[in-house]
Amino acid sequence: VTLFVASYDYEARTEDDLSFHKGEKFQILNSSEGDWWEARSLTTGETGYIPSNYVAPV
């Protein structure tokens, strides 16, 4: 399981994006799509795309 933590807050801009807060942890589901990764929030359980430059490895 690949875990990352949010370095910043992010507000979703499309329905496919995932909003999150600094400190929130994610399981990365797919990182092969470039700068936007499909992730599941371990806080909310929601799945969506997050900007990879807003998160760091745990």
Rank of each mutant, 00 (worst) to 15 (best):
V1S: 12
V1F: 13
V1Y: 14
V1R: 09
V1A: 12
T2E: 11
T2L: 13
T2F: 11
T2W: 12
L3E: 08
L3R: 04
F4Q: 03
V5I: 12
V5S: 05
V5N: 03
A6M: 01
A6W: 02
A6P: 01
A6F: 01
A6Y: 02
A6S: 05
S7W: 14
S7Q: 15
S7I: 15
S7T: 15
S7A: 13
Y8S: 10
Y8D: 09
Y8P: 00
Y8A: 12
D9S: 09
D9W: 05
D9R: 04
D9E: 06
Y10G: 00
Y10P: 01
Y10N: 02
Y10E: 00
Y10F: 09
E11G: 05
A12V: 01
A12E: 03
A12Q: 06
A12G: 11
R13M: 11
R13I: 11
T14D: 11
T14K: 14
T14R: 15
T14S: 14
T14C: 15
E15W: 08
E15D: 12
E15V: 11
E15G: 13
E15Y: 09
E15F: 10
E15Q: 12
E15R: 10
D16R: 15
D16C: 15
D16W: 15
D16F: 15
D16N: 15
D17V: 15
D17C: 15
D17N: 11
D17T: 15
L18T: 02
L18G: 00
L18C: 04
L18H: 02
S19G: 07
S19T: 09
S19N: 06
S19R: 04
S19V: 02
F20A: 01
F20G: 01
F20E: 01
F20Y: 01
H21A: 11
H21M: 12
H21S: 12
K22S: 07
K22A: 11
K22G: 04
G23D: 05
G23F: 05
G23R: 00
G23W: 04
G23M: 02
G23A: 02
G23Q: 02
G23C: 06
G23N: 05
G23S: 03
E24A: 04
E24I: 02
E24R: 00
E24Y: 04
K25T: 12
K25M: 15
K25N: 06
F26T: 00
F26R: 00
F26D: 00
F26V: 03
F26K: 00
Q27Y: 14
I28K: 03
I28Y: 01
I28G: 00
I28P: 02
L29M: 08
L29C: 08
L29V: 07
L29H: 04
N30H: 08
N30D: 12
S31R: 12
S31H: 10
S31A: 13
S31Y: 13
S31V: 11
S31T: 13
S32C: 13
E33Y: 11
E33W: 10
E33A: 13
G34C: 13
G34K: 13
G34S: 12
D35E: 12
D35G: 11
D35L: 11
D35P: 10
D35M: 10
W36Q: 06
W36S: 06
W37H: 03
W37T: 02
W37S: 01
E38V: 14
E38H: 13
A39F: 03
A39L: 02
A39P: 00
R40P: 03
R40N: 05
R40Y: 12
R40W: 08
S41M: 05
S41L: 07
S41N: 13
L42M: 11
L42H: 05
T43M: 09
T43F: 08
T44C: 05
E46A: 12
E46P: 00
T47Q: 09
T47E: 08
T47H: 07
G48K: 02
G48S: 03
G48V: 03
G48D: 00
G48Q: 01
G48P: 00
G48I: 04
Y49M: 14
Y49G: 03
I50W: 00
I50E: 00
I50T: 00
I50F: 01
P51L: 07
P51C: 09
P51D: 05
P51E: 03
P51R: 05
P51I: 03
S52C: 12
S52Q: 07
S52W: 08
S52A: 13
S52L: 05
S52Y: 08
N53K: 13
N53T: 11
N53Q: 12
Y54H: 09
Y54T: 06
Y54W: 07
Y54P: 03
Y54S: 12
V55C: 05
V55H: 03
A56H: 14
A56G: 08
A56W: 10
A56V: 15
A56Q: 15
P57A: 09
P57C: 07
P57R: 06
P57M: 09
P57H: 06
P57L: 09
P57T: 05
V58S: 08
V58L: 13
V58R: 01
V58P: 05
V58C: 10
V58M: 12
V58Y: 12
V58H: 08
